[in-house]
Design a protein around this nucleic acid. Sequence first.
RNA 1: ACUGCAAACCGCUCUAUCGCGGCCGCGUUUUUGCGCGGAUGAGGAAAGUCCGGACAAUGUAGAGCGCCACACCAUUUAACGAAUGGGGUCUCGCCAUUGGCGGGAUACAGCUAGUGUCACAGAAAAUUACCGCCCCGAUUCGAUCGGGGUAAGGGUGAAAACGUGCGGUAAGAGCGCACGACUCUCCAGGGCAACCUGAGGAGUGGAUAAACCUUGUGGAUUGAAAUGCCAUGUAUAUCCUGAUUCACCACAUUGGUGAGCUGAGUUGCUCGCUCAGUUUUUUAAGUCAGGAAGGGUAGGCAGAUAGAUCGCAACAGUGAUGUCGCGACUAGAUAAAUGAUAGAGGUUCUUCGGAUAGCUUGCUAUUCGUGAAUACAGAAUCCGGCUUACAGGUUUGUAGUGAUU
RNA 2: UGACCCAUGGUGUAAUUGGCAACACAGCAGGUUUUGGUCCUGUCGUUCUAGGUUCGAGUCCUAGUGGGUCAA
Length: 129
Amino acid sequence: MPVHSFHKEERLKSRKIISQLFKEGKTIKSYPLRVVWTEIDPPKNKFPVQFTISVPRRSFPKAHQRNMLRRRIREAYRCNKHDLYENFSECTSQYGLMVIYIAKEIVPFRDIEKAMLKWMDIFIKNVSQ
RNA sequence: ACUGCAAACCGCUCUAUCGCGGCCGCGUUUUUGCGCGGAUGAGGAAAGUCCGGACAAUGUAGAGCGCCACACCAUUUAACGAAUGGGGUCUCGCCAUUGGCGGGAUACAGCUAGUGUCACAGAAAAUUACCGCCCCGAUUCGAUCGGGGUAAGGGUGAAAACGUGCGGUAAGAGCGCACGACUCUCCAGGGCAACCUGAGGAGUGGAUAAACCUUGUGGAUUGAAAUGCCAUGUAUAUCCUGAUUCACCACAUUGGUGAGCUGAGUUGCUCGCUCAGUUUUUUAAGUCAGGAAGGGUAGGCAGAUAGAUCGCAACAGUGAUGUCGCGACUAGAUAAAUGAUAGAGGUUCUUCGGAUAGCUUGCUAUUCGUGAAUACAGAAUCCGGCUUACAGGUUUGUAGUGAUU
RNA sequence: UGACCCAUGGUGUAAUUGGCAACACAGCAGGUUUUGGUCCUGUCGUUCUAGGUUCGAGUCCUAGUGGGUCAA
């Protein structure tokens, strides 16, 4: 039975790591999402991945639209993250991830879920190399 | 019954699975934590940030000027530029005849304090004389020229020097009179007041204050990124500018007082006020004050969610609202919770199809299936208003149309 | 969360105290030229929107829309 919970420790909150992400992070594109990732050294806690979401204000000026997209992305991550965790269960390092929504219009949940699975596969391959 | 307008109110529901925030309880654990259970978790505008407060910091020695806001009256309120009631003005409709009733709008103090502006047109846009009219003088047939008076007439304009009539005059003129219009003022009556009604007196002054301004009233400034505390970390380093004077008292060191100087504070300015420094010495260093550039941290707690709170009833009031009684009330995040998926239902509309009823025979009503729509929008210190956005629905008032009586 | 500023042809800017909306470049059409360029002529506007004050509004007032700046 995979764990579907999503706790505070799994969220990326540190400003330092986020600014480090944009300086030296690597990107994976999977429309309508773009993922920026890097290795966190030293690890903050036991979870292998810290995760955060960004929806640009320029594309969606209304707050409730940004809230809705943020909730859909978070829900898609929460339901599918167990694959990611299984691959990293023996790994000691920790990774920081930021998912940025790049589409100009609101996309339904199923399309976001497909894109989520796609970049996860690419991410796992990149890290194992 | 339908449609329009105005006001007030409501603003989708349920089930299953997987989750999120803070709270409570239990279990486990050295603690952090983890697990289980429970109840709870987004608005009428949470929005815009247009006003007003609460709260906090700074200042507290104030005064003047400046700046900002408001502007018919009364009431309500913690306060307001908000609300309620009333008055004036403008406008529309009806009755109806110079008034009454009803609806709507209203930044509604003062151009009779001063200054400014009023394009084009027009003689003239505010102490005005171009034409015209009248008087006098010169030349003189007519007529022309010069001086003066006048505001009755003159095609303009947004606006033309109170309007009409009579008198008066050389010609005219509110120059005088009658009626009327408007302004100011005084008296009487009504009203808390704005104001209304009646009578008298003085006057005739173009518009513009959302032009400068005047008068009256009010306003200290800055905003939760305020502010207080804890933790972590660092650089008593560097550079620039300024000050380090005099007199008196007690005196072993040294301290105190006063003046001056310097600096800081004192809302934008000025006056005034307050505070700090003024030590040693060869003159650099040092010290103090202000500034520049730089280094570090960027975590937590409080502020911060029970209050000018909400609902119902009674009483007071035309009403906004107030008093009192009873009852109700855990959103509190901080890279920012309140969600996702699936299904069922509700409401509205109607493309389409079927059934039933009515008759005007292709429309109306009801119902079933199907399809579409289900808005505007996300708390961030908290309240009272205003403004703006909004699928659909309910109630009340009002106007119109149709039917019946 | 709070404070402040701006909006005029397609673009960049003017418009004095409220009185005929102007200039340059670009675009389009025509002319000149064998053709092109240069040059000449013409054309292109809801002054962000709505309401108000005024005889009259780009300008003044109110409300909104859009864009931008500052404060840790």
